[in-house]
């Protein structure tokens, strides 16, 4: 399981600081705001749920 972390480019660049709850919370909140601002209301179903 540790291999997952060391091979993930995100963690390799930014380190394990990303795992801190404050950092984690900030990123989730930021992405949530981006989704609200730039998300689209046009099409919500996943293509592959048709298969």
């Amino acid at each position: 399981m540790a291999d997952v972390l060391s091979s993930d480019p995100f963690f390799r660049v930014f380190g394990r600081r990303l795992a801190h709850p404050c950092v984690l919370g900030f990123v989730i909140a930021l992405v949530a705001v981006l989704i609200i601002v730039f998300g689209s209301s046009s099409d919500s179903h996943f293509i592959y749920t048709d298969f």
Binding site: P21, C22, L24, I28, A29
Partner: peptide
């Protein structure tokens, strides 16, 4: 605890926004 901590921080920040 780590996961919930992160989600709580996210909630707090979103509440401020």
């Amino acid at each position: 605890r780590n996961a919930l901590g992160g989600i709580c921080v996210a909630f707090l920040l979103l509440a401020v926004v």
